[in-house]
Computed example of a mutant assay.
Amino acid sequence: MNADAAYPSRSYLGLGLGLAALVVVLDQLSKWWILEVVMQPVPRVVEVTPFFNLVLAWNYGVSFGTFASGEAYMPYVLSAVALGIVVALFVWMRRAERPFIAVALGMVIGGAIGNIIDRIRFGAVADFLDFHAAGWHFWAFNVADSGITVGVALLLLDGLFESREKS
């Protein structure tokens, strides 16, 4: 069997990787701006709208603080797991037969890499987007988290509609 036969004739790898790079750049630039400009000289709450603030929250775990631990090695463990997931998603992206899948995977990969960079640099992920209503605050998040969430949502939507098309 030809080694190229496992991959589609048209590759969307460049599209997915380009979007992943864009998510990483936007994530890191936004975190730089928050850390070096907005939250200087001291972290504070910046009210942007009646339902949105800029804050600084350090997430030592993963989603919603899950697996947060005071252990010094934990950022490296979480980064290694995330890197393994990135590799698996990259393999999936290489085989993507449609641009929609490459876009979704690129968003997840870019978000994961953005948060890996934070864990290696700071030992935690910088979160700063705070939406709230009626006194209830959603968990603070960042651009990388947004990329992951939107990418996963697109993959779920694709799975939902793809299965209907095959029926």
Rank of each mutant, 00 (worst) to 15 (best):
M74F: 01
L54C: 09
E36R: 13
A80E: 02
V91S: 01
A80H: 02
I101A: 15
M93E: 03
M93K: 04
Q40K: 11
A68R: 02
I113C: 08
R44T: 12
V87A: 09
K31F: 09
A68F: 00
R94T: 07
L35H: 11
I34S: 01
E71K: 09
I109F: 01
A68S: 14
Y60F: 12
V87T: 08
L83A: 13
R44C: 08
A102C: 13
I34Y: 10
G110Y: 02
P41Y: 07
S30V: 01
I101R: 14
Y60G: 04
P75M: 06
F52S: 10
G65F: 05
Q40F: 12
V91G: 01
N59T: 09
V108M: 09
L78W: 02
Q40E: 13
A96V: 03
L56H: 12
S63N: 15
V103I: 15
A112N: 09
I109Y: 01
G114I: 08
L54R: 04
W33C: 13
L105T: 05
L89D: 05
G61C: 09
F52M: 13
W33T: 14
V55P: 04
M74I: 08
M93T: 01
V45W: 07
M39N: 08
S30D: 10
Y60W: 06
R98A: 15
L89T: 00
T49L: 14
L105W: 11
R94W: 07
V77D: 04
P99E: 13
P43D: 10
Y73N: 06
M93C: 06
W32C: 12
I85M: 13
R94E: 08
A112G: 12
R95Y: 04
V103D: 07
G111S: 02
G70H: 10
V91K: 02
G70V: 10
A68E: 07
